[in-house]
């Protein structure tokens, strides 16, 4: 019997529902929870939403930072080959974390402001867009670069730098190379690759896609997508300067 769960007393013959509930109230067998309980509950939910929002913003900015650092946001300019590199090299773990946090945050805030009236996908897309805009702005600040420097110096506890290392920071696709130009040549340039710290000669041909122009300077950090044609020689399909804007 349900009424026994709340101990409103035995259901005597003839007593109405109202009488039973009121009797339980008068005898203080049922008490209202204090207002502070609900205030604390709301504060806890708001705090959880705030923490999730902060995490979401940070993870969005980290995904954008990693993508930009690895030159991923410029590779679609190289056509289908660039899209393949993008798909291979995107920081998928960070993106997965972003989606999980977005779903959690969306679920928490649906309790507020009557967001349940909208389909979940609509609130999730709105949350994701806002987080991406905020993350974009945050990724433009020196925050991530500083943290990454500390990670490389080893001055940050390992756990805090986890997002800046593999597997969160994925490797480049096999045919994408990032390096710094050591010297220029009549038909290309010599670059020191970041992965493996080796020297590679990049040959630029007429068909090579050069969205930033064909003039390269010593010291520039560039991404090259190309095919290995000989030992330490690449025939470039496309080259982009990585310090350029998006």
């Amino acid at each position: 019997m349900i009424h026994m769960r709340h101990d409103t007393g035995n259901k005597e013959k003839g007593t109405t529902l109202k009488e039973q509930v009121m009797l339980a109230i008068r005898e203080h067998r049922v008490e209202p929870r204090p207002r502070a309980y609900f205030v604390l509950y709301t504060l806890a939910a708001a705090l959880l939403a705030f923490v999730l929002a902060a995490c979401l913003l940070y993870v969005a900015s980290l995904a954008l930072f990693i993508s930009r650092e690895q030159g991923l946001l410029v590779v679609p300019a190289f056509g289908w080959r660039g899209v393949t590199v993008l798909m291979y090299s995107l920081p998928w773990l960070v993106i997965a974390l972003f989606l999980v946090l977005g779903i959690l945050f969306g679920s928490v805030i649906r309790r507020f402001a009557q967001l349940h009236r909208r389909p979940f996908l609509v609130s999730f897309v709105a949350v994701a867009l806002l987080a991406l805009i905020g993350g974009f702005l945050l990724s433009k600040t020196p925050t991530h670069r500083r943290i990454e420097r500390h990670v490389r110096d080893g001055s940050l506890p390992h756990i805090f730098g986890i997002g800046y290392r593999e597997p969160f920071r994925t490797k480049h696709a096999p045919d994408a190379y990032v390096g710094t130009i050591i010297t220029t040549t009549p038909d290309g340039f010599l670059t020191r690759l970041e992965e493996g710290d080796r020297l590679v000669y990049v040959v630029i041909e007429r068909r090579t896609m050069l969205p930033d122009g064909s003039e390269f300077s010593v010291g520039e950090r560039v991404m090259t997508i190309g095919d290995v044609v000989a030992t330490d020689t690449l025939r470039a399909v496309g080259v982009r300067v990585m310090d350029s804007d998006w």
Partner: peptide, 14 residues
Amino acid sequence: VQDVFVKAYQNINS
């Protein structure tokens, strides 16, 4: 329904 009213009373401050 009796349970509903008991819950409503317990949570009236919300």
